[in-house]
């Protein structure tokens, strides 16, 4: 199985890019399966299944951060895609917790960013950008060329070695170079591992402690003016 993971903030154009890519995969007779991981609501699976007739699925992460949900279910998702006879599995994830990233070793990690999102976005999204292989910048039709150049620079400043692809995804412009990279992806190995290191902090709020203030918590903590420090074993 070859795995391609598309991450990016809400409404940045992930699905639009994916549909354009699948169109080209069809022409090349490459079999693709698609999974959407979202927190509360998603309908892309039905839409893509209807449009292309390929196997699709959705997973609600609910209480989990979508990236964590990804980690928990991806092995079974790959097995599912294999049973469906697909050669490629595309995962679209909302990737909302900006401390970890959804990318897996040997997969192709694609972060989708919209050009209209402001010049500081590339600095704000951490490993979702820095651990990706390709950054697709969508909605270039909505900004000037000068702004495109500056936005691209900001992306490269945050992630030096990333491949930047600019796209007007509505019209399928800039999609071919993405497909080229997808065709070159290697098979994933089992067991699968996440790329990069997970965040050091274990969140005590996540395990149910509601009291406000550092003194009520343990693990990696901070106060208003201090750096991070550790309390516990």
């Amino acid at each position: 199985m070859k795995l391609v993971i598309f991450a990016g903030p809400p409404t940045c154009g992930k699905t639009t890019v994916i549909r354009q890519v699948i169109k080209r995969m069809e022409v090349k007779k490459l079999k693709t399966a698609y999974i959407k991981i979202d927190v509360l609501y998603a309908d892309e699976d039905e839409m893509i299944n209807k449009e292309f007739g390929i196997p699709t699925k959705k997973i609600y992460s609910g209480e989990l951060c979508p990236d964590h949900c990804n980690v928990v279910v991806l092995d079974e998702a790959v097995e599912w895609a294999e049973r469906e006879g697909a050669e490629f599995l595309f995962v679209e994830t909302a990737g909302l917790c900006l401390r970890c990233s959804p990318y897996v070793e040997n997969s192709l990690g694609i972060v989708v960013l919209e050009a209209t999102s402001g010049m500081n976005l590339p600095r704000k999204i951490g490993p979702m950008l820095t651990l990706a292989d390709i950054s697709v910048i969508t909605k270039i039709d909505l900004i000037s060329q000068a702004e495109r150049e500056v936005f691209r620079y900001r992306v490269l400043q945050a992630a030096k070695d990333i491949t930047v692809v600019e796209s007007n995804a509505l019209y399928g412009i800039g999609i071919d170079p993405i497909v080229k990279q997808i065709e070159k992806v290697q098979h994933i190995d089992f067991p699968m591992f996440l790329k990069g290191n997970p965040p050091v902090g274990t969140c005590t709020i996540c395990v149910g402690k509601k009291e406000i203030g550092a003194k009520n918590h343990f693990g990696v903590l901070r106060t208003l003016d201090s750096d991070l420090f550790y309390v516990g074993e």
Partner: peptide
């Protein structure tokens, strides 16, 4: 893009860059 030989001045009449 920084060596792109073509500059396109689009019909846009507003910038979206917050700089």
């Amino acid at each position: 893009p920084s060596k792109h030989p073509i500059a396109l001045i689009s019909q846009h009449t507003n910038f979206l860059s917050d700089l």
